[in-house]
Amino acid sequence: MIELAGATVTAYTGTGHGGQQEILTILHPVTCTLVEQRVAVIGANGSGKSTLARLVNGLVLPSAGTVTVNGLDTLTHGAAVRRQVGFVFTDPDAQLVMPTAVEDIGLSLHRLDLSAAERDERARAALARFGLGDRAEVPVHALSGGQKQLLALAGVLATEPAVLVCDEPTTLLDLRWRSTVDTLLEGLDQQVLLVTHDLEAAARADRVLVVDEARVVFDGDPRQGVATYRDLMAVHR
């Protein structure tokens, strides 16, 4: 269960050398309780939807208000929250930090206090589950974009998080890989918060949030949410 209570995000504008920095709001107060299995977040580029996603595992901390996941406050229990919330980024290249696939998954498993042998075994099992069993020792930079995203997902899911936050996980993928990743996400037992530009995927969710100009402007039924978003984009044009 994800609860946002008046969660607000501000940032420094970062202009000028040494001068006074100004503060601007990048997400106005959001209050909602997300219990649905599949929640989609849609909105234009730069609207604040990525910030909303990052609030959920403490990558971005609220300047005011609170964010809790299963009762844990992201501000005071950040490490515990990150053990429960897995995060998948748009660009897997930045997310994969180790030279080979099996090492990268092993890195995710480090916080589970396993022996090296157990870690290796679980990493290989996770790779096999995602059809990457024969890619364990291959350098990560030699994988295709789709394989990299699959590997990123495998690394995040290997630690069995309770919640999965995905920030546009299919934006950089071709159609074939997009449907592979979509199918995979839809089959998960975890609660999934999906930030996406794919309106069909959003319409299949249980609940949709529409973010526009740093505010949550719609929260509710997926079909209605997608329609609201299409209207918004038409007005902006």
């Binding site: 595992n57 990558l59 490490a79 990150r82 995060f87 980024f89 997310q95």
Partner: peptide, 17 residues
């Protein structure tokens, strides 16, 4: 920019905790 997103990914995986 790459280092920044990598740092974010490390933090998301709990490696800065």
């Amino acid at each position: 920019a790459r280092a920044r997103s990598t740092g974010e990914a490390l933090a998301a995986r709990g490696l800065g905790d």
